[in-house]
Design a protein around this nucleic acid. Structure first.
Lengths: 138, 138
DNA sequence: TTATTAAAAGAGAATGATTATCTTTATAAA
DNA sequence: TTTATAAAGATAATCATTCTCTTTTAATAA
């Protein structure tokens, strides 16, 4: 992801462009497998040794609040972050910590169609995410 | 849930039947809305004031490991527990902490059928859970 | 370009959920 | 009833995350 692209993302959300925010957005884009805050902190500190841990958490919160990244729910007790904002699902490995994105428009359409007919009592749906649990072959 | 029913669940898993385990399984069954460990601890301590906090965590781990209950993660960073083990999905409220189970066999069949035809590359599916995010009307 | 100001970052302590450790107790089987 | 072993109790430790307070910086306008 280009620096200007990242800058524009921040500007579009009326967020101040700071080196820390740019570095963190960059880190999340580079780090695969939905990094934890710790992964991001480690990565950042390689090139920016004097970035405070609390800053990373604060920036992550801001980015989530502004929908530039997402928090991912897992069974484990640490939060993980996802660079991709477009609608997608997750593949979870039951044997490792690996998480991958899964994009499937046909599936989305099928589910959307299903719930356009079948309403859930007393509940309005905004979004549906699939947690697909299984095993990677490689 | 009857005491003998709970006892049998434990015995079937080759787990020792202890008053603490019975009480905790009972608590999770009684407490609605997917209690946190703290909710369970509070509930337990009303009737069993001398149960240690660590014991509750240990028992919860054992129950999860033996698939008598499930761990659920939310946007917040505390784990929550679910008494129901049969296949179901979750309704998350985007405005509150409310979580409800959603059981829908027709949906399960549709998804199963879909993925029996459409394979995910390099991935074997074991289970699929839907996170249905939205708002409760009441 | 510089001054201004609100927002952001830095630093490190505090918090709080969860885990670990070690001792005591209780369950299940002989 | 005894015994072996797993579980519970008690409390300290851990560690991810948040808080507080101070300093710095980005964005705006003179």
């Amino acid at each position: 992801m280009k620096a200007t692209e990242i800058r524009n993302k921040l500007i579009n959300k009326n967020l101040k462009v700071t080196p820390q925010r740019v570095a963190i957005l960059n880190a999340i884009a580079k780090l695969k497998n939905h990094p934890t805050a710790e992964n991001i902190i480690d990565f950042i500190k390689k090139n920016h040794p004097n970035v405070a841990t609390a800053t990373v958490y604060k920036v992550l919160d801001v980015l989530v609040a502004n929908e530039l990244i997402k928090k991912v729910k897992t069974e484990k007790d640490v939060m993980r972050y996802d660079a991709i904002i477009e609608n997608h699902h997750h593949l979870y490995c039951s044997e490792s910590d690996r998480i991958e994105d899964y994009v499937d428009d046909e599936l989305n359409k099928m589910i959307e169609k299903y719930f356009s007919k079948k309403k859930i009592k007393d509940f309005q749906i905004n979004d549906i995410k699939l947690q697909i649990i299984g095993k990677f072959n490689k």
